[in-house]
Design a protein around this nucleic acid. Sequence first.
DNA 1: CTGAAAGCGCTTACAG
DNA 2: CTGAAAGCGCTTACAG
Lengths: 339, 339
Amino acid sequence: MTKVIIDDVAAEAGVSIKTVSRVMNREPNVRPATRQKVEEAAKRLGYRPNASARGLAGNRSYLIALLYDSPSAAYLTNLQSGVLAATQAENYGMVLQPCQYDDPHLADKILTTIRDARLDGVVLTPPLSDHRGLIDSLVDAGIPHVIVSPPATYMETSGGLCVYVDDKAAAQEMTAYILGTGLTRIAFIKGTPTHGAALQRFDGYKDALKAAGLDLDPELVKQGYFDFESGVKAAEELLALPQPPSAIFASNDEMAAGVLHVAHERGLKVPDDVSVVGFDDTPLSRQIWPALTTVRQPIRQMGGCAARMLISRIRQSGDAASTALPYELVIRHSTGGPK
Amino acid sequence: MTKVIIDDVAAEAGVSIKTVSRVMNREPNVRPATRQKVEEAAKRLGYRPNASARGLAGNRSYLIALLYDSPSAAYLTNLQSGVLAATQAENYGMVLQPCQYDDPHLADKILTTIRDARLDGVVLTPPLSDHRGLIDSLVDAGIPHVIVSPPATYMETSGGLCVYVDDKAAAQEMTAYILGTGLTRIAFIKGTPTHGAALQRFDGYKDALKAAGLDLDPELVKQGYFDFESGVKAAEELLALPQPPSAIFASNDEMAAGVLHVAHERGLKVPDDVSVVGFDDTPLSRQIWPALTTVRQPIRQMGGCAARMLISRIRQSGDAASTALPYELVIRHSTGGPK
DNA sequence: CTGAAAGCGCTTACAG
DNA sequence: CTGAAAGCGCTTACAG
């Protein structure tokens, strides 16, 4: 119960406190035998480094911030939980930083916050992942950062660290699945245009049509904004067409929920009259009726991966590289064919 | 850009650093004029206290922890956002602490975490709000804490700090509303039995029936556990009854979503064949079809209130008292009557 | 109501 | 690969 400090561990291991410090911070240049001796002593004593002392002496916080602007609650909590777990395993802490994408001074404010709180690095999440001004400021200021679901152009033009899912391949595969159920008149509801993933999903849809030898019918493509309301609006237009689609692929679950809403109001049976597909596999997709066919992204793992990459970059361990994580098609009851 | 420290503020205000410290920590015994002088100097210089230095010198973290065990994502993010805002306004920080209700060593683990991280206090959220062992440990160890939605018995028997909504009155009012639409055969799906709010909601339902001169029909009351699945199960039993209910009041939105699911599968029209009501006003309640009539709790405000009460208790400012926040009936399309 | 001194437990340079 | 000294920016006692 009585608190254990670095001197205790040093005494127990028979080394100086500086060596204990090296081990706790995973610094190189410690003999394996010494490292092990220190780790055992720390464990035996139940030593936990004092975060405040570390922060004060090192002029930094050992904290990373999760930057977000009102994503869906499910997305945020999953990502958060992944970041938190990874962060604690590395003797780091996580703080939450709500942001406003539209704030013209966003980049300045964030930089100030980072300096004031001596934050070690930040994780950017959609839609902030698309905020070029913010990203550029971070790069210019030399702030370590990792981007979750970056814009397509960013991935190609920079050496920045990113975590993502191959949205294009996922959308292509899902479109192919729908085609496989015998439906060819497939509508698509696009996501927010500035969001990289939105573009990729649309590309995947187009590629699948092309691969099947089908032409893209422009009247079957509607602009949405990743929210329920825009899904409703797009669905109303689509289902009022003289020749309505036999399937609607919405770029995310919330818009798909909007589509279901409109289908129900019009007395349409899903999937008999129209198939509906989403993207994300949020809890919502299981709770609406019928349960939604969708694409699962491993959000929690993406958070963990982002945190580990960021910390490794902060420590200059230098073996961090952008990572693509696997997606998965989840076939439920809003589409025909085998479940 | 160059960092401002307490000495700079002291010099600017013409006082000692100790006085600046008093002002920043809202301590008493500072002449108003002096306080103002310091506050102006701090503002002019853009002074932000160094959290690490405060923590090290004070042997505490100026951090409060939000303790939770997998509540709904919407609930967590809302509460979190309220706590975060209040906390920052008071020069405190917030950390997240996931817990496992069923862990037999939960109380010990939490106490250890609190000591290791020198946490100043904790906010308990459902279902941890009902964990007597945890609460007792916190009380015994003298750890400042605030309970969100406490068990009914706790409120009456202890001087503990709580934030809550009058669940009983809300459920009573909602039941009365359903009765007002002309329906009398109203079923009720209870929530997790150990959860105080679950009991209160059931009490409110019973009181409303009694006030209307109606007898409680035991076969119309089902046990649920605040999750989608248990809502499905309860609804299946209810709707298979020889004389099914004309309305179903689920103790939360997720269970209500389960009820809608079953109703749709059975080809029942909502609200024509059966009215459905939830509790919480999560985003889900707007995204399912038809949009759900429910009760809104001001979750975000509850978080802010809890944080302010906790910090005031930590500072021994001593004017904190348990607080009831207002609820609101949200009438949408899953019930008959005027919208 | 206000202040001068000591010290919290680490990391940073620097040395070897 | 390892260590001795200094100091980070606050708060805590203690004084007056």
